[in-house]
Design a protein around this nucleic acid. Structure first.
Length: 221
DNA sequence: ATATCGATTATCT
DNA sequence: GATAATCGATATG
């Protein structure tokens, strides 16, 4: 690790619950540029990474959403109050992170798909078992929904139903460091078969940490 | 650079 | 018993 870490402003404030108590499309759009934080672990090193790609899931109205078939033991966090982590296990290998949106009883959510690492890069690389050779290796840390959860040590046992609006009661939270996203792109959601035509994937235009091959990253606003 | 495929298990039908 | 909001390895142009 010879390259300097990207600059990050010192003050990061947690987003409040009202931020998440809205339509998931609105939350998704506004989450771009915010920061995912894991604190109080890694021997005092705080992990931070900027949110550059998310997808909106529209609850019981959305055939692609886990909540579509109604409330189950797995997805009950989605039906609870906004601002909580919904973590699920997929393909026998990976965890994915969502944040619950809308008022209690409404199951909309936002899936975290890619982050741009800011601090704690060595700790993320260790968690991912990635040897950092070139600057391009950075992409392997948090570019993809399964990758970012592994980099942050997010599992269902540890983090499902944790409060993402609190820096005190939870080691995992979402903050605002006053970064302002310039241009946002909209595209189809990745890896789903139902309602695959809906444009509910939000990315920061041109950000190199957006997941997928190049063809997946070049999308129009 | 793009395509295809196997891994591996919780969850639900 | 089938499926899944994925990843990494391998093959081929």
């Amino acid at each position: 690790m010879t390259k300097a870490e990207p600059e990050v402003s010192s003050a990061i404030r947690p987003l409040d619950r009202n931020f998440f108590a809205r339509d998931p499309r609105r939350v998704a759009r506004e989450l771009l540029g915010k920061v995912l934080v894991r604190a109080g672990e890694h021997r005092g090193v705080t992990l931070t990474a900027r949110i550059v790609e998310v997808e909106a899931y529209l609850g019981t109205n959305d055939p692609a959403a886990h909540a579509f078939a109604g409330r189950t033991l797995r997805n009950e966090v989605l039906f609870g109050p906004p601002g909580y982590a919904y973590v699920y296990f997929i393909y026998g290998n990976h965890y994915c992170l969502n944040v619950s949106c809308q008022a209690e009883g409404q199951a909309g959510s936002v899936l975290f798909r890619a982050l741009e690492p800011l601090t704690g890069i060595e700790e993320m690389a260790r968690a991912r078992r990635i040897v950092m050779r070139t600057p391009r290796s950075l992409r392997l840390l948090t570019s993809g929904p399964g990758r970012l959860t592994e980099a942050f040590g997010i599992t269902r046992t540890r983090d499902n139903n944790c409060d993402l609006t609190s820096a005190n009661s939870s080691s995992l939270w979402i903050g605002d460091d006053e970064f302002r996203t310039q241009r946002i792109c909209l595209s189809a959601r990745i890896g789903i078969t139902k309602a695959a035509d809906r444009k509910l994937r939000y990315t920061i235009a041109g950000n190199p940490f957006v997941s997928g091959p190049k063809s997946f990253r070049i999308v129009s606003a």
